[in-house]
């Protein structure tokens, strides 16, 4: 006993001990030492690059030489409002909205079932069944849809077996969303987006539903509400913050993606593709930078509204 105490007192003079004591006496110093490395990393690498990029949106590009003109101007932003560029922005917004709404419709029953009816082993199974697609490779998921939507793929095969080819053709004949085949249509792009981002909607919705107290539902039933009324007036309003939290992901991820519409879809651009082409082959960094401001502003507005509706408590 005394030997152990002696060995500890002996170390008192050691460098480690003195450093440790100094840190213990000045918690602010320890806090600074802990915080500075991660903050430096994100501050310099991430925020630094982000602001450098945004600053470039106030430059312009010389139409003749193709060189960047380093003078402050808003002309690049004016260019955003050209018809062709506005088209890209509106197309992306419509797609993001459609994907978000559809993921609520498809995701809610899964989240509701998992939160209210799955128990024990089934609960774990449901959790894994949502987590595995969420974390499995993004590219592989997109690739699997390339296989599915191909003209010679499984959808056409099923349609043939069920004698529903006319239905498939009718769907593809719908103006705007249709096209020569599913893999070259907005409908195809939409399906892939929905598939890839759906788990991001299910998880927060399920979390919000788990927190609805059971006695609230019983109280609603005791007071004479039938299940439909209970759902509309009790369960759904309480789940709404979770749905909004999920919609932040589905909306933002759809808005910025440039790989899915490149692989499955028509040749018209979405926001991400426009940015990618502008900074790459076109070499127009100022306009590309101005384009990236669009999703940042939209997401800023979205997050502000979501915060006001209490979505962050559901994350």
């Amino acid at each position: 006993m005394s030997a152990g105490a002696a060995s500890i007192t002996l170390e008192r003079g050691g460098l480690a001990r003195r450093t440790s004591d100094a840190l213990f006496r000045r918690p602010a110093l320890l806090l600074t030492l802990l915080l500075v490395p991660p903050l430096l990393w994100l501050g310099i690498v991430y925020l630094g690059s982000l602001f450098a990029l945004l600053a470039q949106s106030f430059f312009s590009i010389d139409e003749f030489s193709g060189l960047i003109n380093y003078e402050f101007t808003l002309s690049t932003y004016r260019e955003l409002f050209r018809l062709a560029n506005l088209d890209v922005i509106i197309r992306s917004l419509v797609m993001a909205t459609a994907v978000t709404l559809a993921s609520v419709v498809v995701g809610f029953p899964i989240a509701y079932f998992a939160a209210r009816y799955a128990r024990g082993k089934w609960k774990a199974l449901f959790y894994l069944a949502i987590m595995l697609p969420l974390w499995s490779s993004y590219l592989v998921k997109v690739y699997s849809w390339k296989l599915i939507l191909a003209k010679e793929g499984i959808i056409t095969w099923i349609a043939q077996k069920l004698h529903l080819v006319w239905l498939l053709d009718a769907v593809l004949a719908i103006p705007v969303i249709g096209g020569p085949s599913l893999s070259i249509s907005y409908l195809g792009t939409f399906l892939v987006f929905l598939y890839v981002w759906l788990p991001f909607m299910i998880l927060p919705t399920q979390a919000a539903l788990e927190r609805v107290p059971g006695n609230l539902i019983e109280a609603s039933a005791d007071l004479g509400a039938h299940p439909g009324q209970t759902f509309r007036t009790v369960i759904f309003p309480l789940a709404l913050p979770g749905i909004i939290a999920g919609s932040i992901f589905t909306f933002s991820l759809t808005l910025g993606d440039y790989i899915i519409p490149q692989i499955v879809g028509t040749s018209s651009y979405f926001l991400g593709q426009a940015v990618y082409t502008l900074q790459g082959t076109a070499g127009n960094i100022p306009l590309a930078a101005a384009f990236t401001v669009v999703p940042i502003v939209i997401m800023g507005l979205y997050l502000w509204i979501a915060k006001r509706m209490g979505a962050f408590d559901a994350l």
Binding site: L50, P295, I296
Partner: peptide
């Protein structure tokens, strides 16, 4: 934020 923003910056 969309990954493309991180990438391009």
């Amino acid at each position: 934020l969309p990954g493309i923003i991180t990438g391009i910056s």
